[in-house]
Design a protein around this nucleic acid. Structure first.
Length: 260
DNA sequence: ATGGTCGATCGTCGA
């Protein structure tokens, strides 16, 4: 099966692009981030009309995540556990069939964290600590686990065209990268890195200053596979052509093919 | 060094 993730930067602004992508690539599952919509405002029927089941965790104006699947979504969980005061819609889980078993899928939108030195950055780090705890819980189950989304972390210098431009950015802080490594080292495979170890593999280009035309990109959208899921990894890719289309998101889809 | 561009929403925040 093909599982994709895409920060679409507004589902209303990106509806036609998203429908076109799904018609053309036909992933079995797609995780969206930054839907920027409440649940009731999500164009669910437009996606149902082309064969997808829909589960959303939205909020007004910003954030918001969703999982769409050709097969029914089971056991949907909305929100990252661990802080009842956190109202940001950045996490949704669901189980989908993979061959004759099920896989647990998470669509996540990790806090940006800028500017550093503010409560936004401490929120990011606290959120990452909560994510580790929830990931560890989910790893206790026997189901293969896929963490897919906009992690807002540049893991290594090779993941940026101009790493020096990001040294004061929350996405490239040592603390952010250390938290990423800690999570990965607890048993996950970075699917894109595993399949494409070289430089120049980016998933985001800023709208400003002609970043895409200069290929001034960063790799911040990731798919982490638990050991059970990594055993099924066949291939992965990045659909950067979507960034060159009209009215693009500033992020592009990332996908994995899993056996079964 | 600054401003550059988007989306949601309609002045301004978030990225």
């Amino acid at each position: 099966m093909i599982l994709a993730t895409w920060n679409i930067n507004g589902v209303k602004a990106r509806l036609e692009s998203a429908l076109t992508y799904l018609r053309q690539q036909s992933p079995d599952v797609i995780c969206f981030q930054e839907i920027k919509s409440v649940d009731d405002g999500f164009p669910t029927s437009a996606f149902q009309d082309i064969g997808y089941n829909v589960a959303t965790n939205g909020q007004k104006g910003f954030n918001g995540v969703a999982i769409l699947s050709k097969s029914p979504l089971e056991d949907v969980v909305r929100g990252l556990p661990g802080d009842d005061a956190d109202q940001h819609a950045r996490w949704i889980e669901a189980s989908v069939p993979l061959g004759d078993r099920m896989v647990r899928v998470v669509s996540l939108y990790l806090p940006n964290g800028n500017p550093i030195g503010t409560e936004k950055f401490s929120y990011k780090l606290a959120w990452m600590a909560r994510m580790r705890l929830r990931a560890k819980q989910l790893q206790q189950d026997e189901m293969p686990l896929v963490l897919a989304g906009d992690f807002n972390v540049i893991p290594e210098s090779v993941d940026a065209k101009r790493p020096a431009a990001w040294v004061n950015d929350a996405l490239f802080q040592p603390e952010s990268r250390a938290a990423w490594r800690t999570l990965v080292n607890e048993g996950f495979t970075d699917a894109t890195r595993a399949c494409h170890p070289g430089p120049g593999v980016y998933t985001f280009w800023d709208y400003q200053a002609g970043a895409f035309q200069k290929d001034d990109g960063i790799r911040i959208d990731h798919i982490l596979l638990s050991s059970q899921a990594a055993d099924l990894l066949v291939a992965s890719g990045i659909d950067r052509a979507t960034r060159a289309q009209e009215k693009p998101s500033d992020h592009v889809p990332v996908w994995v093919k899993l056996a079964g």
